[in-house]
Design a protein around this nucleic acid. Sequence first.
DNA 1: TCATTATGTTACCGGTCGGTAACATGCCGC
DNA 2: GCGGCATGTTACCGACCGGTAACATAATGA
Lengths: 221, 221
Amino acid sequence: MLPVGNILVKEGYISIVQTDIHGNSAKTRKAGRFAIPVRERILVAAGDLFHKQGIRGVGVEAIAEAAQTNKMTLYRYFDSKDELITEWVRGIVAHKEEDWKDLNARYRGDPQGQLQEWSRRTAAKLRAMEERGSALGNAFAELPDPNHPARRVIQEHKLREHKRIVRLCKAAGFRDPALSANLFSMLLEGAHSCGTCVGMRQIGEHLVQVVDLMVENNRRQ
Amino acid sequence: MLPVGNILVKEGYISIVQTDIHGNSAKTRKAGRFAIPVRERILVAAGDLFHKQGIRGVGVEAIAEAAQTNKMTLYRYFDSKDELITEWVRGIVAHKEEDWKDLNARYRGDPQGQLQEWSRRTAAKLRAMEERGSALGNAFAELPDPNHPARRVIQEHKLREHKRIVRLCKAAGFRDPALSANLFSMLLEGAHSCGTCVGMRQIGEHLVQVVDLMVENNRRQ
DNA sequence: TCATTATGTTACCGGTCGGTAACATGCCGC
DNA sequence: GCGGCATGTTACCGACCGGTAACATAATGA
């Protein structure tokens, strides 16, 4: 069991526990209050299962169980499974965009630095990933319906991300910003799929190397 | 209706027809023989639907209908849906490896040329794709079970493909073949996901440009 | 023509899934 | 302690899905 905050990972399933004032774990109490509110627990559990077993491969019942609650409560917080999926995706996207903002704050006025640091962070995520690929990428593949709200959220996010990269390439003075940006995007996206056969660690390292080389080449020219 | 050989595409579903000696379409005959054998028709229909609606999003009944046959006949040719999926994946993989062989024959002893031509062919496929991404990539995302035969087929294929690229990079005399090969793989794989937000045409063109640049740089050095 | 073989038809099975209703139980603030 | 409110429990519904059995029909070849 690997403690991660209040979330314990056990046998591939997450379970969320809490100890009350007397040190009794929530599991021993019949209906104890949890440190993490239900809604969030459900989202965490859903995300974990969605990512591991595929969105369509996991039922709401299993999600509720993994979140230490039940189906009824789940449906009191989410109108439907599709809404739960969408909310989950929204969370990931929000987190990534927070990451971009943080990057922008730390490397203000240094577009090259931002690109390099982003590649380093991506490499770190790849290293921590192992096995199954990108959550957003998989979700996108699993939701073919162009009208599915979650799919739209992913699509819009990818577009924003790409525009951000184009902006950075322009600011960094790349000779052909559109081409450079596409190159960066292809590398960043491709690393996830390639990692499954080359190994996440190596692909991460090489991603960083290539990005560093590109930036260096651009500086010298 | 867009005629593609004996396969007609209508309203997103494929239907396979044939005219007999007297010019009567198979549809008018109650149980006419088809030019394309049932098994192949099922595979084509399954592939089309799998790719468009997702593997888990389409039922065997719908596949049988799209193939102008019925569920019973489908199960006479395939033991299970999973086997049908696997057979379909095997077909795609075989086709891609044929493509590699053809490349090797046409550009024998010219590894740079092979890499460039492969990028051009990939770009052409991207252009013809539009909308939904790579069939293999999506299938891989939709089959999380590491023991699923289809997943293994994809995995092994990706590995072979990557090894082939490494071999080409070595033969082409790239300074760091492992890194160059990973770069190529990332580009090739990433192009499919990026295409959905940048546009398949542009991403294809830029893919070719980048690969050409890499080869050129390698030649000059 | 007749028997064989391939295909179509219908009906069904068990299981799962998303989603809901009705009610029971616990928790907390007053 | 009591009442309101969040949560848990159980049972259920209709729909769909993968897969099978039994039988009917059509094409083919001898």
